[in-house]
Amino acid sequence: MIEVARIAALMKAHHLNTSELAEIVHLSPSKISKVLSGDQKFTSDALGILIKELGIHPNWLFGHEGDPQTVLYMKDLVHKSEVEKLETRIRELKDELGEVYKQLAEERRVK
């Protein structure tokens, strides 16, 4: 179930009123009002439109991630290839650091 606070935050972030949101998701303004009051739920089509058209992260929308008051967008995510590059660089740096420690240990042993 979608929290009303998340829909309200989304509307605030995009400066949308009930009619404008209704137009985006192809529902009536009265349906949106009922969703905001907690009396009804969004249709799956309307949720898909929100996710696609506004770039909303589905996990945020469904309450699995993030603060309800701060909209999380798909663009905020880091692409998997970027994460892999960073992880590779971290491994390289750890290896370099290990070599430096070995050199220091060898120098101390020689002294």
Score class of each variant (00 low, 15 high):
K12N: 14
L72G: 04
H14A: 02
I51A: 05
G48T: 00
E106P: 01
E84W: 02
K102I: 08
A22T: 04
I90C: 13
G55H: 01
Y73I: 06
L86P: 06
E96G: 10
L47A: 13
T88K: 11
G66V: 03
I24T: 03
G66P: 08
L47S: 10
V71K: 04
L54Q: 02
L97W: 07
L21M: 12
E87H: 04
E3A: 15
I32D: 09
K34T: 10
A5S: 13
K34D: 14
E3L: 15
M11G: 12
S19F: 06
S81D: 06
I24L: 15
F62T: 08
E23P: 05
H14C: 00
D95Q: 14
T18W: 03
G63H: 05
L104K: 12
I7P: 03
A46D: 06
L61R: 04
A46T: 01
W60V: 03
L104S: 02
N59E: 14
T88E: 14
N59M: 12
R108V: 04
T88C: 05
E20H: 07
I49K: 06
V83G: 01
V110D: 14
L93D: 09
I2V: 15
H26M: 08
L93F: 09
I51D: 06
L36G: 01
A5P: 02
Y73A: 08
E87P: 01
L10G: 06
V25C: 11
I32S: 03
V71A: 09
L77N: 07
Q103V: 00
A9V: 10
G63R: 05
F62E: 01
T18A: 13
A46E: 08
N17L: 09
H64D: 12
Q103E: 11
V35I: 12
K12E: 14
R91H: 02
P58T: 03
T70V: 14
T18K: 15
M1F: 10
D76G: 09
D67E: 13
H15R: 13
E20I: 04
G55Y: 06
K80W: 00
L104F: 02
M1G: 15
S37R: 15
E84D: 07
L86H: 07
T43N: 09
E23K: 12
Y101Q: 13
L36F: 00
K31E: 09
K12R: 15
L97P: 08
E106M: 03
A13T: 03
D95S: 10
A105L: 11
T18M: 15
T18I: 13
M1P: 12
E53S: 07
